[in-house]
């Protein structure tokens, strides 16, 4: 007798738990319009705003006079775990003091090797480089991922020591 009651109890319990599960999915199905969480990416480009701190790519900031703050100290090159940054520097005579001064010739950035760990940014003593939240950099050619960050003709800003 006990076995029979437990047999039916099992069945009713099973049906109850199954219906509970179906209630949850049924709720979301009937409220799909409100609850859908996926975004349609290329369509929502205009409204898509990344967080300020989002690490998309390393950039060398230039101001309106086409001047940057990189002294070519290569602290970022040392801090980088993957050899992403290569700085080719030159020495130039300062017209005012007459001293030889280090300036950057090319700030080469291998985006394909970058793990976006932010170590170069925090190691930079002059805050010359920063992370940009843009992220659409897929290309068909790997060569395009090697970038020269300093713009042509750019100079180091005067006040940077």
């Amino acid at each position: 007798m006990n076995a029979i009651t437990s047999y039916f109890k099992d069945i009713f319990h099973a049906i109850k738990t199954l219906l509970t599960g179906m209630r949850v999915t049924g709720y979301y199905f009937s409220h799909a319009r409100k609850e859908i969480i996926t975004q349609q990416y290329p369509e929502n480009r205009d409204t898509l705003k990344m967080f300020d701190r989002f690490r998309g790519i390393v950039t060398l900031t230039h101001d309106e006079n086409n001047e940057h703050a990189c002294t070519g100290c290569s602290a970022c090159e040392i801090a980088c775990p993957n050899g992403t940054i290569e700085i080719i520097s030159d020495r130039e005579e300062d017209p005012e003091t007459g001293k030889k001064k280090k300036i950057i010739d090319k700030f080469i950035y291998h985006y394909s090797m970058c793990t976006l760990c932010n170590l170069c940014i925090i190691s930079c003593p002059t805050d010359a480089i920063k992370m940009d939240p843009s992220f659409e950099y897929a290309t068909f050619d790997r060569k395009d991922l090697t970038m020269i960050l300093n713009k042509p003709g750019s100079k180091i800003r005067k006040d940077v020591k």
Partner: peptide, 13 residues
């Protein structure tokens, strides 16, 4: 589509 709506997705679109 039904699966997508159950799973809070949009499905084929």
């Amino acid at each position: 589509k039904v699966a997508a709506f159950f799973q809070l997705r949009l499905g084929p679109n």
